[in-house]
């Protein structure tokens, strides 16, 4: 049984959905953060792939593309000790409160 990201040849007749969405600002910024951190030597493409592959399969299947990138960014920043879970949770909670 292949891992969830290893999709080649999985049995499906699902048509290709060719509708394209305009990227939200946060998606473009996640894309950019990965690239900026890469240039600073704080993140590698293969590390990011490995982080995405480590997501629980049911989450991998249902998350959008940049949601996976966001989850991978968090995994890598925690692992490298750049940020802590407590810091992210606290900042996240601040953002949850309407101004």
């Amino acid at each position: 049984m292949p891992q969830v990201h290893d999709r080649g040849g999985w049995p499906t007749e699902e048509p290709i959905d060719r509708e394209e969405h305009i990227l939200a600002d946060w998606e473009r910024r996640v894309d950019a953060m990965h690239n900026v951190l890469s240039e600073k030597g704080l993140r590698r493409t293969d590390e990011m792939r490995r982080a995405i592959e480590s997501l629980p399969p049911e989450q991998y299947e249902t998350m959008s593309y940049y949601e996976r990138w966001t989850a991978a960014l968090e995994i890598l920043l925690l692992e490298k000790g750049v940020l802590t879970a407590g810091e992210i949770d606290a900042r996240f909670a601040e953002l949850e409160r309407p101004e």
């Binding site: 939200a24 946060w26 996640v30 953060m33 998350m63 968090e74 920043l77």
Partner: peptide, 13 residues
Amino acid sequence: YYARRARAMESLL
């Protein structure tokens, strides 16, 4: 959820 998670990380970085 994930957009805010990203925003939180960006602000901390």
